[in-house]
Simulated scan of single mutants.
Amino acid sequence: MRTHGMTKAAALCAALVFAALAGTASAAPEKASSPPRAAAQPGSERVLVDCSWKARVRPTDFVLACGDGNSRLTSLRWSHWGAHSAVAEGRSLVNDCDPYCAAGTFHSYPVVVRLERPERWSRHPDLRHYARMTLTYPEGGPEHLARVVTYPLWS
């Protein structure tokens, strides 16, 4: 009988996640082909591509864990946004998923964000997107992460 209850709970969680995703996807349709305003010269604009495949310039927030939102950057203040790199300071919010993610607690850590390796974006060849992100936790970060972590970014 306990297994049946667990199966029902798992099915309910899956249904809630599906409903949330479906509601989010249909709530506000976006134009898929509208990049940010073009820069003076084609190929000179640098963007950060988010989970919804939107090009963003100097975003104040950014979701790292697109599937569940359990890791995100907030309160980003950009001190540099250039041809080869971009730098910001902000907060990293990470869910400890203890005992599991839905019941976990978000913890906030100071973070320095560095974007690098601009490449042509296949969806909008006139734009270049940053292809690598490095997070530095100056005061220490989540226990499962090193002080400096580098991620490849999607395109």
Score class of each variant (00 low, 15 high):
residue 83 A to K: 08
residue 150 T to V: 09
residue 57 V to A: 02
residue 41 Q to E: 13
residue 23 G to T: 08
residue 38 A to H: 05
residue 95 N to A: 08
residue 42 P to W: 09
residue 38 A to T: 10
residue 2 R to T: 11
residue 75 S to M: 04
residue 115 L to Y: 13
residue 56 R to Y: 06
residue 108 S to P: 01
residue 120 R to Y: 09
residue 26 S to A: 11
residue 126 D to W: 00
residue 138 P to Y: 10
residue 1 M to P: 04
residue 60 T to D: 14
residue 144 H to D: 14
residue 47 V to P: 00
residue 51 C to N: 11
residue 117 R to F: 06
residue 117 R to I: 04
residue 2 R to D: 13
residue 104 G to L: 02
residue 106 F to M: 06
residue 43 G to T: 04
residue 32 A to R: 09
residue 94 V to F: 13
residue 102 A to S: 14
residue 11 A to S: 07
residue 68 D to P: 03
residue 56 R to N: 15
residue 8 K to E: 08
residue 125 P to W: 01
residue 106 F to Y: 14
residue 15 A to G: 13
residue 96 D to T: 10
residue 135 L to A: 04
residue 116 E to K: 15
residue 105 T to L: 05
residue 64 L to E: 04
residue 112 V to F: 04
residue 130 Y to N: 07
residue 132 R to Y: 03
residue 103 A to W: 02
residue 14 A to W: 03
residue 52 S to N: 15
residue 93 L to W: 02
residue 75 S to P: 01
residue 74 T to S: 10
residue 26 S to G: 06
residue 67 G to P: 03
residue 75 S to Y: 01
residue 4 H to T: 12
residue 59 P to E: 00
residue 138 P to F: 10
residue 51 C to H: 12
residue 128 R to L: 08
residue 97 C to K: 06
residue 14 A to I: 04
residue 111 V to M: 01
residue 26 S to P: 01
residue 77 R to S: 11
residue 14 A to S: 10
residue 68 D to L: 13
residue 98 D to G: 13
residue 153 L to C: 10
residue 53 W to G: 09
residue 155 S to I: 09
residue 63 V to E: 03
residue 82 G to I: 09
residue 138 P to T: 08
residue 26 S to T: 11
residue 53 W to M: 15
residue 139 E to P: 00
residue 142 P to W: 03
residue 135 L to M: 10
residue 116 E to C: 07
residue 88 A to Q: 02
residue 50 D to T: 15
